[in-house]
Design a protein around this nucleic acid. Structure first.
Length: 445
RNA sequence: GUCCCGUUCGUCUAGCCAGGCCCAGGACACUGGAUUUUCAUUCCAGUAACAGGGGUUCAAAUCCCCUACGGGACGCCA
């Protein structure tokens, strides 16, 4: 019952108004995310409006990139393209009549005039004060009249943006701080139309990780679609983005989206710009990958391994599952899974030269390998449980530590200096593979 | 150049509005140690910051002013 009352009283309407450019910038994504979070937090409406007044940019491909990016991040919109709504059309290119009628209002009140073929808006010259939900009171005075319709008859951004916000009954304008200086223009227009001002919330910008300035599309890691193609988990990217300019205030960082929605509010947004740090994103992503349910990990990994030629058709499902089960805790991302897991399925796996050098610079390493080879051959029960005490006994017998055996063996059977826990690794690989690989390794060296 | 916004560890941030509990807490990264077993996991420890100056106050990271630095906007782009 509480929800019904909440719905009736709720008037929050926010919008994300991107220009389809053919890529989905991480800064735009974060703006979309904050709008979406605020809508979900308040039970309000999240509108997607496509600002395609620049007709050359309005391509199918550019729209596809936008929709896919939004959906990948889980940012579903309540109104907009493909969703409908009572305030459409949601493409600015289809709203010409609305803009014309608003222009007439300005002409009638003497606030618009023609000059040099374009239409100019006559400013009031007064200081425009806004109560920004993030920054507090901000005052700015517009100095000169500005163009609202180009000489080719099309309206410009400041004009359509305000008209649409009025028409679509937007209550909160949450956007990047790069628009803060534009706001005085917008406020002039709202007032000229006699429309109430929305609440503005100017969120900090995302700065590039190296050098100066805000993140631009050419910077490393600037595009959402790159994270998708590099197999980052969208939940992880979204979680990281939430932390750029906002925090739950209680030292937690990895949070479910439900928890974030509950805690998110405009008052909790920071004022200062945030530098993008892919290392932290990678850490968060790794944490999400390690905590994935095994079935989900399998579902995500199988096509990658198949495509990389690591996994054959009809591979034993139980074996695949147990490989993932022992590997998951050591995984740092999905992208490297084919390389990381190749030796479980193929014999032509690569060898890490550095690890080889490090391990076999000790002259006894080969001897240890020969000693344990004998043990493995006579080992009837090839399970982690049985192998561990056997290797420990062998180490005691030869007055050394188990590490002296583990390192050369791991390298001989996997070509790596690291990987899943040792004894489970032996069990999953199985006696035949382990013995065969040690034998050929010994023969080759 | 003009205007607007900002400034806590290398980075993201907590604390600031309601000054004392902060010789400043957490996380990433880094360094060292532990897991009598390597490791990209896990655990423990360590290094590391209130931009500078002035003021208000018994007391300032927290309030005020100035300077410096950083970011943004100044388009018939969005």
């Amino acid at each position: 019952m509480g929800t019904i009352i909440q719905l009736m009283n709720n008037t929050v309407r926010v919008r994300f108004a991107p220009s389809p450019t053919g890529f989905f910038h991480i800064g735009s994504a974060r703006t979309a995310l904050f709008n979406w979070l605020y809508a979900r937090h308040t039970g309000g409406t999240f509108v997607l409006r496509v600002e395609d007044t620049d007709k050359e940019r309005n391509t199918e491909e550019a729209l596809r990139v936008l929709y896919e990016g939004m959906r990948w991040l889980g940012l579903d919109w309540d109104e907009g393209p493909e969703a409908g709504g009572d305030y459409g059309p949601y493409f600015q290119s289809q709203r010409e009549d609305i803009y014309k009628s608003y222009l007439e209002k300005l002409r009638a009140s003497g606030r618009a005039y023609d000059k040099e073929g374009a239409v100019f808006f006559k400013i009031s010259g007064e200081a425009q004060v806004i109560q920004d939900a993030v920054r507090g009171e901000v005052s700015r005075t517009e100095e000169k009249d500005f163009v609202i319709f180009r000489s080719n008859g099309t309206p410009v951004f400041h004009f359509v943006n305000v008209v649409d916000d009025i028409e679509m009954k937007i209550t909160h304008v949450i956007r990047g701080e790069d628009h803060l200086s534009n706001t005085s223009k917008h406020v002039e227009l709202f007032k000229a139309f006699g429309a109430p001002l929305p609440t503005f919330a100017h969120i900090p910008l995302i700065l590039k990780s190296q050098g100066s300035g805000k993140m631009s599309k050419r910077d490393e890691g600037a595009l959402i679609e790159d994270y998708a193609s590099r197999h980052f988990l969208p939940e992880a990217v979204r979680n990281y983005l939430c932390l750029l300019g906002w925090s739950p205030k209680d030292d937690r960082e990895i949070l479910s989206i439900e928890e974030i929605i509950k805690l998110f509010d405009l008052s909790g947004i920071n004022k200062n710009n945030a530098r993008f740090d892919e290392r932290k994103l990678s850490f968060i992503n790794a944490d999400y990958v390690r905590k994935l349910p095994l079935e989900t990990l399998a579902w995500l990994t199988r096509p990658m391994l198949t495509q990389a030629g690591v996994l054959e058709e009809g591979c034993d499902e139980d074996y695949f599952q147990s490989v993932l089960a022992i590997s998951q805790e050591k995984v740092k991302d999905l992208e490297s899974m084919p390389d990381f897991l190749k030796y479980f399925f193929k014999e032509d796996y690569s060898q890490d030269e550095k690890a080889h050098k490090k391990i076999f610079k000790k002259p006894e390493a080969k001897t240890r390998l020969e000693e344990i080879f004998g043990l493995f051959k006579s080992q009837e029960v090839f399970t982690a449980e049985a192998l561990e005490p056997a290797v420990e006994a062998l180490a005691t017998e030869h007055e050394t530590g188990t590490g002296a055996y583990i390192q050369p063996v791991r390298f001989a059977i996997s070509g790596q200096g690291m990987g899943p826990s040792f004894y489970p690794l032996l069990e999953v690989l199985g006696k035949d593979r382990v013995i065969g690989r040690i034998e050929s390794f010994l023969a080759a060296s």
